[in-house]
Structures are given as structure tokens and as C-alpha cells.
């Protein structure tokens, strides 16, 4: 299958910080990607480079097989409303939608209208007078109604209340089901979006630390709780991504799955097994990557030595 995005060794640094560090990525068409990471991890920078809104120091970006920079053919199929998107001062949401309709060839005005009602957006008020949530709603509506082949949502839920966020996720799943396209959902609220994702990319300090199908990540790690000694013996030789100690107890998260025999063994040793959610796993991988940084080690994990 042809890829939508190909990124090779993309690097970007600002005066005194590295925003992207040799990023390699490949995105396939008609999938929902989650671009996850902490605030400042490099999510927006990466999306800016992919849409030629920003410029890398080195590396190569290909979107729909071509360099997106000043490339009308490519850009006209992309929609990227950033979290801090600026609008002309005098514009109301209505003006913004009318403008968007001029440039996105798949623009669905009816959908935009329905979303306006969903989010109860005052379309005649100037955008600069809107609340943070309403501002996010403007971006969400443009992103969804554009039906662009490649759509980026940059922390789309900021300021939206729980009801509005659910509405966004519902509408996204619904519309994506009817009009499949490539969607990149950038978020630091992982639990909320986890179930919507088909593929997960985790970025931390400008580096990609996870790039895998969501379904293979789910259940790809487990936590064992019990007396530290027994946990250590049980997990001998496994890749450990997180350890918590409490008195003589340990709660250790390890990569992989357990066979039926191993589960029985754990039960017989009096160890408790707990599943690890996508969010927990991402958080632990991120922390463990930071730990590896401190230890000046290249690996993102530590072996249990007991």
C-alpha cells in the first residue's frame, strides 16, 4: 500500500533545545493515528514540518509521495488547524468556515452546520471573543468538515467540557466510518482517545519512543505485584519498564505476555497480575526513556538483576 507520509531522519532544533531528533516515520492511508506525548514533546513541531508550515534543519518529508513545501497538489489535500491557530481579527466563526469552504474541495457545509449546533457555537461572534473551548470547537469543525485526505487534530479538546469532547469523538468515529481518511490525532490525554486509535506514535523529547498498532500495544505489557523477592525471580530475564517499591512489596511492569503456565505459576507464588492500559504503558515508557537518558544509556529499558 502507498504511504501517506514518509519521514526520514527529520531533525529540528531551536536556539537551545532539540525539538525533533532524527525522526523516522511512515503513515499509511485511511487510518487514525494517535500522536501522543507530553506537552512540549515535539508533537506540534512535527506536524508543522509535515505540513510545510515549519522548516526542519535536516531530513526529508514526503507527503503523498512529494515534498509538501509550496506544493499546491499536496497541501490542498491536507488540513492542519493548530492548537494556537490564529484567525484574522475581524473574523467570526462563520467567516472562518466560509473561507475554509473555498479551499477544501471535500468541504461539507451540512456537516459543519450540524457540528455548530452540537457544540452550540456562536458563529456570529468574532473569534477573538470566543472562549478557549469555543476556539477549539472552531478548529475541530474545520478539521472534520474539511474531510481532507490527511487531517491533523492538534490537542483538539482544549477547553472543551466533557460533553463536547465526547461529541467530538463520536462525530469523528461516525464521519471517519463513512469517509475513511488519514487522521492524526495529537493528544496528551491518552485514555480519552486510546480506543479511537488504530496506530500509536509516542514522541518524547523529540524522539519517537513507540510506533506500533494500538491493538498490539494493548496487552503487550503486564504488571506483577507481590513481595519484591518473588516478583524479581518471576520476572527474571524479562524487559522491565517500570518498578514501584513499597516496603517489601514491588509492583513491576514488564513487556510481553504470559503463558497459561506462567499465570498459574504467578498465582501459586501468590503474585497478583494486573493488565496495563495504553495510557499506563505510554506513561511508563516515557518515564523509562527519561531514566535511560539520565543513565546516559541508549536502551529504553533496564534488566532486572537479582
Amino acid at each position: 500500500m502507498k504511504t501517506v507520509i514518509e519521514v526520514r531522519n527529520l531533525s529540528k532544533s531551536y536556539r537551545n533545545s532539540v525539538a525533533l531528533d532524527s525522526v523516522i516515520l511512515s503513515l499509511e492511508p485511511d487510518r487514525i493515528y494517535g500522536l501522543l506525548g507530553r506537552n512540549g514533546a515535539g508533537k506540534t513541531t512535527l506536524m508543522s514540518m509535515l505540513t510545510a508550515q515549519g522548516f526542519p534543519n535536516s531530513g526529508e518529508v514526503k507527503v503523498f509521495g512529494e515534498d509538501p513545501y509550496e506544493n499546491e497538489q499536496v497541501l490542498s489535500r491536507i488540513c492542519f488547524i493548530r492548537e494556537s491557530q490564529k484567525y484574522p481579527d475581524s473574523f467570526s466563526a462563520k467567516h472562518a468556515f466560509r473561507s475554509a469552504a473555498l479551499f477544501f474541495k471535500n468541504w461539507d457545509q451540512e456537516l459543519a452546520g450540524r457540528l455548530v449546533e452540537d457544540f452550540q457555537l456562536p458563529v456570529k461572534r468574532t473569534i477573538k471573543k470566543l472562549s478557549r473551548g469555543q476556539l477549539s470547537a472552531v478548529g475541530v469543525i474545520i478539521g472534520l468538515a474539511s474531510r481532507a485526505e490527511l487531517t491533523f487534530f492538534d490537542e483538539p479538546y482544549l477547553g472543551l467540557d466533557a460533553v463536547a469532547r465526547q461529541l467530538f469523538y463520536d462525530r469523528l468515529v461516525e464521519d471517519y466510518g463513512r469517509y475513511p481518511r488519514t487522521i492524526v490525532l495529537s493528544s496528551h490525554l491518552i485514555d480519552e482517545v486510546a480506543n479511537l486509535l488504530e496506530h500509536v506514535i509516542v514522541i518524547d523529547k523529540g524522539r519517537i519512543i513507540m510506533d506500533d498498532d494500538a491493538e498490539s500495544i494493548r496487552g503487550s505489557a503486564f504488571t506483577v505485584v507481590g513481595s519484591a523477592d518473588k516478583v524479581g525471580t518471576f520476572l527474571q530475564g524479562r524487559e522491565i519498564i517500570h518498578t514501584d517499591n513499597f516496603a517489601s512489596l514491588a509492583s513491576v511492569t514488564a513487556v510481553g505476555t504470559l503463558s497459561r503456565a506462567e499465570k498459574t505459576e504467578a498465582a501459586e507464588l501468590g503474585l497478583e497480575l494486573a493488565p496495563v492500559s495504553l495510557q499506563q504503558l505510554v506513561v511508563r515508557k516515557t518515564i523509562s526513556a527519561a531514566g535511560a537518558d539520565l543513565g546516559a544509556s541508549k536502551t529504553s529499558s533496564l534488566e532486572v538483576t537479582r
Binding site: T51, I78, C79, Q85, P88, F103
Partner: peptide
């Protein structure tokens, strides 16, 4: 104004510079 506000907006609509 055209540059400080309209240009960033145009980028959001995937318009080339």
C-alpha cells in the same frame, strides 16, 4: 495585519505562501 493574522490562517487552510 494581513501578515500577522491572515497569513497564519491561510497556512491552516493549506494555502502555499
Amino acid at each position: 495585519q494581513s501578515l500577522t493574522l491572515t497569513f497564519p490562517f491561510s497556512q491552516g487552510l493549506s494555502i502555499t505562501r
